[in-house]
Design a protein around this nucleic acid. Structure first.
Ligand SMILES: [Mn+2]
Ligand SMILES: [Mn+2]
Ligand SMILES: [Mn+2]
Ligand SMILES: [Mn+2]
Lengths: 219, 219
DNA sequence: TTTAATTTTTAAGCTTGCTTAAATATTTTG
DNA sequence: CAAAATATTTAAGCAAGCTTAAAAATTAAA
């Protein structure tokens, strides 16, 4: 399957998993930077290939085959991110940028080698789960967005759900990193701000950030 | 530049460096598994881009810009081979197969990270020189084909100039590996066979192999 | 050196993955 | 609930990278 098809299928998958928005062609077109017409066109082609269900004016839905393909690409993407992060200490933004390309030119054979080398990790450096070789995600995500965290509790950062360079730079500068501890000082309900302590520093985050930083309670 | 263009330019470069055959479109077409017509077509397009000189019925010649591009791809190819060989202990055939794809999706940034990690190696696991970040090959190749080696001398294997899976499997089985020692027992002039000792084993090689195994004298 | 074989080029056409512009349907709003 | 705004689809077209078939040139052979 072509790079265009792989990115299309993956975009639908990610949209279903992460975003509030629906998966109509226009949304996918937006994510991929192509025209609505191109997305509608591609949707029809992929429906003919049995990768998704297409009905005029309705949201696109991956078939089992389509989801399997998406998970295969996602696996390779996240394995590359994990490898590049570990080996070369590249930033969250850099690893994503490189993985976006490498994911399409990676054999299942090589993906397995990378996975082995890393000890079959279950999460990538953003905290996203890595599907296994069968395309299954076996971990259960119990994490919550920071905006929903409770005052006076301490959490572990479990996921940074973004692809934005500036956000990752902010995180790197302030110790907001997968696995680090974070304490909630106060939730300001009206202004949707969250005051936290991390690395002994006090920081106030707005909604843009507290909705994409996920944490797990410490037990 | 597209994958098709990169592979085309690289094929001309490799053909000039390694093969006896000329670089007319038909030869390149053969290497790439495309039709002569497609190769002629591409040659014209690349001439328009200033990557090569094209004259009807003549051999294709890379311009400086074309050679620079080829060296950039070759660098990435060989760095990947070195990395995959070191990290995952993959075979000479496997690393080549994967590098053939990864080379096109590797940023200069990532290539430099790989090079750094490996200590800026000058040769890949096949013994081929790795161009530096400026596209220069600074090493001088003094090696000779085994067919031209002298009887009763011992050499170091410096290069395995092939892309054939079976050949690499033979090499792996018999300790024919970059850096290993090899002694020439006898050169049979008429039959073009070469008797060698490697790893205390006596092996007789025919011309097909002695022309692609390169060695350096031990000083 | 003329003929035959081979190679290269030209021509026509196909698929993929895009584009823009116009038509049509859906969704939102007054 | 009708009008306006928005989103989706259809239609027409383009560039890249291929193909096969035929024409033209080169190279090898007799
Ligand atoms: Mn990513
Ligand atoms: Mn991608
Ligand atoms: Mn190689
Ligand atoms: Mn390649």
């Amino acid at each position: 399957m072509s790079v265009a098809i792989e990115n299309f299928v993956k975009a639908i998958y990610n949209n279903e998993k992460q975003d509030i928005t629906n998966t109509k062609p226009g949304n996918i077109a937006n994510k991929l930077g192509i025209s609505n017409a191109a997305a509608t066109d591609m949707a029809k082609k992929l429906a003919a290939k049995g990768l998704l269900n297409y009905e005029k004016y309705q949201a696109l839905q991956l078939t089992d085959a389509g989801e399997k393909m998406a998970l295969n690409i996602v696996r390779k993407h996240r394995l590359w991110e994990a490898l590049l992060h570990k080996m070369f200490d590249m930033s969250l933004h850099e690893i994503h940028r490189e993985a976006e390309l490498l994911e399409h030119e990676t054999s299942d054979f090589l993906a397995e080698k990378i996975s082995e080398y890393l000890g079959h990790p279950k999460f990538d450096p953003h905290g996203d789960p890595i599907p296994n070789a069968n395309g299954e995600i076996t971990t259960i995500d119990t994490s919550i967005a920071l905006i929903n965290a409770e005052e006076n509790k301490t959490y572990v950062i479990s996921r940074l759900m973004s692809e934005d360079k500036e956000f990752f730079e902010f995180c790197a500068l302030n110790g907001i990193k997968y696995g680090n501890k974070i304490s909630i000082v106060k939730q300001f309900q009206n202004s949707k701000m969250t005051q936290i302590i991390i690395n002994t520093n006090t920081i106030i985050l707005n909604q843009d950030f507290t909705q994409i930083i996920y944490v797990n309670e410490i037990n």
